[in-house]
Nucleic acid binder design. Sequence first.
DNA 1: TTGCTACCGACCGACGGTCGGTCTATAATC
DNA 2: GATTATAGACCGACCGTCGGTCGGTAGCAA
Lengths: 226, 226
Amino acid sequence: MGKRIVKEHSVRKNELLDISQQLFNERGYEATPISAILKAAGVAKGTFYHYFHSKEDLLDCLVERITHRILEEIHGQICQPGLKALERLNRSFIASARWKAANWDSLWVLIRPIFREENLPLRWKMNRRTRQLMVPVFSDIIQQGIEEGVFDTEYPEDAADLILGLGFAFQESGFELILSLREHPEYAEIIARRTDCYKDAVERVLGAPRGSLTIDAGRSLERFRR
Amino acid sequence: MGKRIVKEHSVRKNELLDISQQLFNERGYEATPISAILKAAGVAKGTFYHYFHSKEDLLDCLVERITHRILEEIHGQICQPGLKALERLNRSFIASARWKAANWDSLWVLIRPIFREENLPLRWKMNRRTRQLMVPVFSDIIQQGIEEGVFDTEYPEDAADLILGLGFAFQESGFELILSLREHPEYAEIIARRTDCYKDAVERVLGAPRGSLTIDAGRSLERFRR
DNA sequence: TTGCTACCGACCGACGGTCGGTCTATAATC
DNA sequence: GATTATAGACCGACCGTCGGTCGGTAGCAA
């Protein structure tokens, strides 16, 4: 008979989310049985289902939490009035990169499995949700940029969606390279080139002047090399 | 005691692949237990594992088969010598669309679940593999286009990858719209606009002249309306 | 005392995967 | 041509694990 420890609803829920996130990072979503979460949390099966309808519901909650944190990070950076569109766009790239860097730091050893195939559902849901949340933001920036005369595109909203899609596509193909960076250090060059290409593509899609954007994957890549 | 029907290796394997593909289309990959495949094929558990290492191995085989069929379709269209780069690119878009149209026709009623979330693994693997197979093809075309002076980009290979990624991103965001086309016929306009936007984006990324590409999602969309 | 909610854990059906073994078509041997 | 040997196609009972259920219990507040 396990001892009964009562906690406030939100406390326990966040506890379960924390543990799940960590385990998913370590082993992957599908490879992590609920039982492992229960054991790590010191909680019974029924308790889990008191907080989540299903395993997938847990994943959804996790995605919601993570994406909102990212969004807040970005919002904080670009919401100051008086910023030019280009500056806001660049800042959002930086904020996103910084968030990733911060989290990758705390995870580091655990990070690799995230990119491995088994975490596809998590990554996909995150991308999807991020897109939903970010399209209005980007759309707004692009609109502003058009008015400022630095961007040239017909439909800001669609352009926003395309850019985000482009980002994820870049990310996906980049992961494979990043993962094999240890065995093939020369890939670093390819990644750098590809990032440049991505930056260029975004500029072109937005009709922005060449070199007006700043995207550095370099920083966050350094730590993968060792 | 089931009767024992012996067939040639490749025959039985393709039979299993056909049945699996259909069932996956109908119910989704995860929601289709191996037992259902066995029942539909009139075959025992052991037989299945005689042909496939695991359920995921089956999925991989399926993806391999499908992607190669698409690639053949495209290859057949663009391999004729004497074609200009623009023509080859446009033809590959058309071939891809035609292949989809042909297959969507034969499935039609069954198509919706393919786009639903549960078939993510299949779609993702298909995209990934398609990208691997298509990058050299596109890269080649882009290289030719640069030499012909119609394209302007620094790294053909990276551009090819980005374009393909862009296509999948476009696809992903488009699916949601397509699925809700019945309830909201007005979305057709949005889809058309977005397709135009996508076409424009590809042109820009390639540095191709405006309006030089032809991508019609319209045709294949018509049948979704009813 | 009552009632609400966090919590428990035995239990279930379904699923992916294993395994020892059987049947059959073809080739080798006499 | 009959007999035996070999390979591999095929079988289905069985297993461990997983996601999910359910009837009930402990703690706390009114």
